[in-house]
Design a protein around this nucleic acid. Sequence first.
DNA 1: CGTCTCCTTGAAAGCGTTCAATTACAGTGG
DNA 2: CCACTGTAATTGAACGCTTTCAAGGAGACG
Lengths: 225, 225
Amino acid sequence: MISVVARDDEVRRAARALVQFGKGQAVYHQGDAAHHWFEVVSGIVRTCRFMADGHRQLTGFFYAGDVFGVDSTSYPESAEAVTDAVLRRVSSAWLSEIPMPDAPRALEKALESARRSIFLFGHRTAANRVAAFLITTAERSGIQAGVKLPMTRGDIADHLNLTLHTVSRTISDFARKGLIALFGRQNVRILDLEGLRAIAGDAECELGGHYVMESEPGADIAGQP
Amino acid sequence: MISVVARDDEVRRAARALVQFGKGQAVYHQGDAAHHWFEVVSGIVRTCRFMADGHRQLTGFFYAGDVFGVDSTSYPESAEAVTDAVLRRVSSAWLSEIPMPDAPRALEKALESARRSIFLFGHRTAANRVAAFLITTAERSGIQAGVKLPMTRGDIADHLNLTLHTVSRTISDFARKGLIALFGRQNVRILDLEGLRAIAGDAECELGGHYVMESEPGADIAGQP
DNA sequence: CGTCTCCTTGAAAGCGTTCAATTACAGTGG
DNA sequence: CCACTGTAATTGAACGCTTTCAAGGAGACG
């Protein structure tokens, strides 16, 4: 009996461990069976999809405290360490024991996020996207005016659906216009947050209200017991 | 007792009725409380979001048998009849009582569709998008070579994230190259399906396999009971 | 101090949009 | 049945933004 409990404890321990990854190392690959989900303890992780045409699409950056890899069967995207990172790895089998948002809710959130990307890629210029990226990155990094960009320009480009050239040019433009200041390639100081916000525009650009187009509620033509 | 049952039956009837909408009429508006979901009996319905900048984004076209409006609290997008349409309107309260395998599946389909749009908007040219649209519309319409396009060019444009000019030009190009034939503005016959497919490219462009980048599984640095 | 990777910058080309005008079509009434 | 009318679609030309092509430069690390 005791040995069984001990073994159970061991399984529990193994099911929830701290693991570390070197810069650039893959946490898991697109298509892998989803045995674990992860929480970032330190460092930064990116999730990305590889397209058949060779293009890469970064779907998210994850900072300390963020969770990723919550997928039911197999991972729809790869996860890689942007910097050296320490992660808490939790076996998917323990999902039920740990309070997690229910599945349909998670689906809806994923859908919502996907729709935001559609908007971003559809109707925003390079300046819009980069400005929005700088602002949100600044907010997530915590430090107010000093933003660190540990990811490469290529990473940012694949996240915003631009080329690294355009990203670089746009950042340089912002610096030239006095919106930000650059210290080396990875350290940015935001000088004019309001100016950046004006360029970024309303990131959550959906209307809460209606575009009323006079319409009847639709006529009932048959009951249906 | 009997009266209660009768009243219950009445509620049931009201909760699931056939309703009809005229061409262009709104089924519901973006932001409305989601009291019902719908199944298309006949006709075509479009769902669309209106952005703060005035742009419109069509998120889907729905044909007979398709389900839309499956949202938990409020509709994130408007729904409008593209043609005169008859819909089966089901009260959200009956979601659990009515055997509805389509409901959760509708969400997954929407997410899949959204992801395809992200890819489409990100890495595909106008020709790619229009070709893909014609093919999928042909498949959904049922009739093999004769595609009907009851939606306007503007609708198609807002769905593919292009201008109506570009859509029109691209369709004309296809006709000029002999890939399709036009009969009036709404009837298209596909003459060279393989040619169209070649232009559309691989619409489901995610890799099933891995891009292996030699990596260790990540070293355990501490157990976590 | 060399080398590697990543970043920056310039110039030209590509593609879709915008502006502007014309044409086709459906619906309506004579 | 045909002219009239308004909406939708087509087409041309110029513009603008991003990409592509090409070259050079800045750090990081040994």
